[in-house]
Design a protein around this nucleic acid. Structure first.
Length: 436
RNA sequence: GUGGGCGUAGCUCAAUUGGCAGAGCUCUCGGUUGUGGUCCGAGCGGUUGCGGGUUCAAGUCCCGUCGCUCACCCCA
């Protein structure tokens, strides 16, 4: 009978199959290890939030809010959205759950799926997963540096190479608006020489002009007023301190005065973690700009707390894309051992032996031995084949005769040698044998 | 949202000017008593992404659609 319809996973989503789970497990393990090492505790927030939480936090005119949110109305009439990123939810929880009364700063981490309605392509999905880190309730630049250091630590513990950090300061509500108008004035005077996209950017988000890759715009950018030069004293000192802390930690970084992050809530420090890609071997044409893959990024968002609580709540954080991390692990050939690695296979022959082997399986498992089986198969041949594929060192064979005599055959899968062992002693004998 | 490339078995891919939809791998079973890997044999597996159109005849040509992919935008 043919199915009514061939179902496929929704566009931009994917299944994480058993063979890939080891990578996910490894990433989760490393993030958890790093986070706990820095005193961060796990938090999980709902996948759904009031849609307004994101539009107020990130800014009405950002791409994410304008066109990438999965927003819908519930039966009860609430307008909710699948979260496009984690930070607003964390700040919402901080404010709502009274974490202002906990010892400050509150350090939180999470591993969670995020949703953005956009065109999928390499390393970009409609549902992706982020590892997030947030430090809330402290304005000290030392935390900006520590967050960056943690991102690097995750990459290093995963065995990744060619990781880089770029850093910049976006200033604060005191100094940024002045710079913004100054920048807009500069580019407006040169508008005819800007690329098509930049003419559009000039209207609603002049800061975005800074990371345009078009050559014609590059030249204009070179002489554009520099954001770092127009920072107020407080932002200047803060940025300087962050860099000093990074130097102290020996974290390699590059200043990028053109680095801009999309959301309105960012203040002062912003940074990106990326991978310098060396795939340009067969490159016939000059790919003038080096290809860089963004693995994550973050920064300080002192403006968010005010938006959500009315009070000043300084904070800093980062998000790392788990799919991209795993993509790089595979590309760089990071080896991860399989999660399931049975040591012993239990084969049975005949109805009586099969029944007996069921109990023995439980016994083996309880004693901590990883045991595999093919209880559904009848022939010894098929079972030994399974055992071979499972890669076990030892196969136990319980036949009709053995079951009656209270013994079992123990087969060494490498040598093929077999010996008969009393059923009562088998657990002990196996443990001895596996030690070698 | 815009533009290019591609959709044949679970995977990797064949199929001549339009002429019976195939192979390798995987999986299952077998190669005489209760013994794996190698070897040999057999089987399972497809309305050629889906829907129309042209034709005696469509995997092949045309249109639409969905999906994948790459680039742009933006990002993780």
């Amino acid at each position: 009978m043919k199915p009514k319809k061939q179902f496929q996973a929704p566009k931009g989503t994917f299944d994480i199959l058993p063979e890939d789970q080891k990578y996910w497990e490894k990433v989760r393990k490393v993030v958890k290890h790093v986070a706990l090492g820095y005193g961060f505790e796990r938090i999980d927030t709902p996948i759904l939030e009031d849609a307004e939480l994101f539009s107020l936090s990130e800014g009405e005119t950002t791409d994410v809010v304008e066109k990438q949110m999965y927003t819908f109305r519930t039966k009860g009439g609430d307008v909710v959205a699948l979260r496009p990123e984690g930070t607003p939810s964390i700040m919402r929880a901080y404010v709502e759950r009274g974490m202002t009364n906990a010892p400050q700063p509150v350090k939180l981490y999470y591993l969670a799926p995020m949703f953005r309605y956009e065109q999928p392509q390499a390393g970009r999905y409609r549902q992706h997963h982020q590892a997030g880190l947030e430090v809330i309730g402290d304005q000290n630049p030392i935390y900006d540096a520590q967050i960056i250091s943690m991102c690097i630590a995750v990459g290093v513990e995963l065995g990744l190479k060619n990781l880089n950090v770029e850093i910049n300061s976006l200033g604060c509500p005191k100094c940024r608006p002045a710079y913004r108008t100054q920048l807009a004035r500069y580019f407006k005077a040169r508008a005819p020489r800007l690329c098509k996209d930049c003419k559009r950017r000039l209207k609603y988000n002049p800061l975005r002009l800074l990371d345009c890759k078009e050559e014609q715009c590059q030249e204009l950018k070179a002489n554009a007023p520099n954001l770092i030069d127009s920072l107020c004293q407080e932002c200047h000192d803060h940025f300087k301190a962050v860099l000093e802390y990074l130097d102290e930690l020996a974290v390699p970084y590059a200043l990028n005065p053109h680095l801009v992050r999309g959301f309105d809530y960012y203040t002062k420090t912003v940074f990106e973690l990326f991978l310098e890609d060396e795939h340009a071997e067969g490159g016939s044409e000059k790919t003038h700009e080096r290809s860089r893959l963004a693995l994550g990024g973050g920064g300080r968002y002192d403006a968010l707390g005010k938006i959500l609580s009315g009070k000043d709540v300084p904070a800093a954080g980062a998000g790392i894309g788990m799919e991209r991390l795993i993509g790089v692990m595979k590309k760089q050939g990071v080896k991860i051992p399989p999660l399931y690695r049975p040591e012993v296979f239990l084969a049975q022959l005949g109805a009586f032996a099969r029944k007996k082997s069921l109990k023995l399986f439980e016994e083996l498992r309880h004693s901590g031995i990883m045991v595999a089986e093919s209880f559904g198969k009848d022939s010894i041949k098929a079972q030994l084949r399974s055992a071979d594929r499972a890669g076990v060192k030892i196969t136990l064979i319980l036949g009709q005769k053995e079951a009656i005599d209270g013994v079992i055959l123990m087969r060494d899968m490498e040598t093929g040698a077999q010996e008969s062992v009393e059923l009562e002693k088998i657990v002990k004998v196996i443990k001895e044998k596996l030690k070698k």
